[in-house]
Design a binder for these strands. Structure first.
Length: 392
DNA sequence: TTAGGGTTAG
């Protein structure tokens, strides 16, 4: 990070034309604040930022939900007589769609058209994603179908977006129909198209169909990638087909696809769900040897499962280990642990975790609260206000 | 080598 700052300062002081590239890199490296400082310095030095510089920062701000600053930046662009182009508008359409604000995204498109900036394929694909996210798949389909009439040829990404939209909204048959349309429209399948459809089939519980489609990839000269295998492994694990999942783990390694932390997360989660916590724990312990560092989610899965197994001391040890490794437990970690303990009716242990959770500034979720109240009621306790003390 | 779109666990 320090090196990047030094480089950035060097660029500015020498007035290199590469400053926009630095700003873009800073935004992509989550250092939007530094990018903004750099922008201010550029202006001070008399270097006028162009539409590319502003767009880079705008995307950075939108990606991190810094809406107020994004709005201020647009005002600044207008003040500096920088005209927004289709890419800049698409950044805004994308930001609204990702937040599920499709009406606002539609308004942005309306403004674009009023300014004679025609929406392009990316605009439409983004909107298809947006409609899908809020469950408006019929609207997404209509939009896709309207593209040729507007002189735009839907790309494979357009199809991928709607296939994904259908799958995420439980409309696998519609997704399958669209999947079959791809070659008829003169488009080539992409590995993402297959990944999306395989995921959709597994998600709908159609494990055999998902597996069949996976095996069909080579007929289109497509090579399964890491995401393909992760989808496949997850589908199998959710169906408790753990042995088959491990077979595919070996196949992917043989094919030169290196499993990542997600792969092991899927397998560990699958093992825990199948009540094979000991094997899961061993696999978890082997991760550092594979050059992989467990993350919060992975710790949560293991510690939560240990709680559910009643192995409270081991869970506590792992919680300490987790913190020592620089991985701070979050509210999900505590909630999952408490849920596990309550499932085993370990009320006092659950209370200890709850106390610790509150000390850390987290709150129990609705499931934990409801489980707690049920178990307290079973014990003849009742919820009451702070004034009364009997059996409360 | 100046900015934009699609897929995976919890």
């Amino acid at each position: 990070m320090k090196k990047m700052r030094v480089f950035a300062m060097a660029v500015i002081s020498r007035g290199f034309a590469a400053n926009t590239r630095v700003i873009d890199s800073l935004c992509k490296d989550r250092m939007v604040g530094d990018a903004l400082q750099l922008l201010a310095k550029m202006i001070d030095k008399g270097i006028s930022p162009d539409i590319v510089t502003y767009s880079s920062i705008l995307r950075g701000l939108c990606n991190f939900g810094r809406w107020k600053e994004a709005k201020d930046l647009i005002t600044k662009m207008v003040d500096h007589k920088i005209s927004l182009n289709v890419i800049t508008f698409n950044i805004l359409v994308d930001a609204f769609c990702k937040e599920g604000l499709v009406k606002e995204a539609e308004d942005v498109v309306e403004i674009m058209m009023q300014r004679n900036i025609l929406p392009d394929v990316v605009t439409y694909n983004t909107l298809v994603d947006g409609y899908s996210l809020v469950g408006q798949t019929d609207k997404a389909r209509k939009l896709l179908d309207s593209m040729p009439g507007k002189g735009l040829k839907p790309s494979i990404i357009s199809y991928n977006s709607l296939i994904n939209g259908y799958c995420k909204n439980g409309k696998v048959e519609e997704a399958w129909g669209l999947f079959l349309e791809v070659p008829r429209k003169g488009l080539d399948y992409h590995v993402v198209t297959y990944n999306t459809m395989v995921q959709g089939l597994f998600g709908a519980g159609r494990c055999a169909d998902g597996l069949k489609l996976f095996k069909d990839m080579h007929t289109h000269q497509l090579i399964p990638d890491l995401v393909t295998y992760n989808i496949l492994l997850n589908g199998l694990c959710m169906k408790k087909q753990i042995d088959e999942a491990f077979c595919f783990l070996h196949i992917m390694e043989e094919q030169g696809v290196n499993p990542d932390i997600t792969t092991y997360g899927i397998l560990i989660h699958g093992l825990c769900k199948d009540e094979k916590v000991e094997i899961a724990r061993n696999l978890f312990n082997s991760l550092p040897c594979k050059g992989l560092r467990p993350n919060v989610q992975l710790y949560t899965i293991i510690i939560g499962s240990l709680c559910q197994e009643g192995q409270v001391e081991e869970a506590k040890c792992l919680l300490v280990e987790m913190e020592k490794s620089g991985c701070a437990p979050n509210s999900v970690t505590y909630n999952v642990c408490i849920q596990g303990l309550l499932k085993r009716k370990l009320l006092s242990e659950a209370k200890a975790f709850l106390d610790e959770m509150c000390r850390q500034g987290f709150s129990p979720d609705a499931t934990v609260v409801s489980m707690l109240l049920d178990q307290l009621q079973d014990k003849g306790w009742r919820y009451c206000s702070s004034e009364s003390t009997d059996n409360c």
